[in-house]
Design a binder for these strands. Structure first.
Lengths: 192, 192
DNA sequence: CTAAATTTGTACCGATTGGTCTAATTGGTC
DNA sequence: GACCAATTAGACCAATCGGTACAAATTTAG
């Protein structure tokens, strides 16, 4: 049978709330209200707000990695996959009305130098995605589509951190202009 | 004679506190304590926390633009100036023990989509810097040192937002590794 | 069916949040 | 020296913060 609430649903709610508002703007009460659970259940599942946020980041890291892996299973060349991937991420942000960006980017910037556990969780999620992205880039290098001037991992990191940079611009301009511009320049870069 | 406190000093204190902690983590009381002023004086000078932060960003935008302009007056080629500039920014962040990054990046990510006034101030500061950086890049393009494949403004934006992206990585890894890697790749990119 | 363990729900805690209010003081101007 | 506006100072405000306490309800184990 199980009990009334479960961790995964609460984490899912926390993901949306934290991604949109950041860490310090959001109070526990808002998460409780949004998830429709009483405080006792929250602190039964999680030690603290920080512990909760760590688990939100971890779950998001895992599920997003899985999503990336599936995305890359489409029938396209590695370079086309990379392009479709980042184009898709830009589209998602447009559909979201440029409201949130990436949870890991937001947490890294806001809390990365203040809370060790959040920094660790953010870093681990990021690196797990880079692994997958670098894997596809490597294939593109082997087939000659993508430059060999840098390692696959270096290119993956360059791309993904580059996109993170555009999130700051996206949020204040409320447009995809900078992301599209970044996309064109970055794709030219990796083609060599 | 003037009165006991003045706005500029309070803004300067606010800059350091906000850059390190972000917007929502910091309370007015902490700023008061750090600046050594009573609450009455704060609300005599500033309408609200948001208004205060806008002015912090604006003052930082102005003073930093001036600093950039002076930096670029050194006797070096445009490309060498750009390299020295970003190398210097990386050095500053290392000396700061990777604690803060850039105020405008932090505010853009944390508040850019929530508070219109902070978004506007952040965007204006950013663009005023881009103007100066693009000016030097243009000179480098004219002398053939820097690629003409993209406009000077596009290149300036690509560089500066790219660096912003590395701040997220810097904060969680507490190292300059990603910034150095970004530097090498980006400089290769603008050389064409 | 009972007992133990877990989860649920809510009242409550001290501390802090951004902000207001008012009185005392200061400074510049006539 | 008088007057007025600006500044200084800090007590105070309701609301919210993250977190605790504990009883009631529910599930699981035996």
């Amino acid at each position: 049978m199980g009990y009334k609430y479960n961790k995964e649903n609460i984490l899912e709610t926390g993901y949306h709330v934290l991604r949109k508002n950041g860490y310090h703007k959001v109070g526990i009460n808002e998460i409780l209200k949004e998830a429709g659970i009483p405080k006792g259940s929250f602190y039964n599942f999680f030690e603290s707000k920080e512990d909760f946020t760590v688990q939100v980041i971890q779950q998001y890291g895992r599920s997003n990695r899985q999503w990336i892996e599936e995305f890359f299973q489409q029938e396209m060349s590695p370079l086309a996959l990379i392009k479709a991937f980042y184009k898709h991420l830009i589209d998602i942000n447009e559909q979201d009305d440029y409201a949130s960006g990436c949870l890991v980017n937001a947490m890294s910037n806001e809390t990365g130098r203040i809370y060790d556990k959040l920094a660790k969780a953010s870093n681990e999620s990021f690196e797990s995605w880079i692994e997958v992205i670098a894997g596809i880039i490597k294939k593109g290098q082997d087939s000659g589509e993508i430059t060999k001037e840098h390692t696959a991992k270096e290119l993956a990191e360059f791309l993904h951190t580059g996109m993170y940079g555009t999130f700051a611009r996206m949020k204040v301009t409320r447009s995809r202009q900078f992301m599209d511009q970044w996309f064109d320049m970055s794709m030219k870069f990796i083609e060599g």
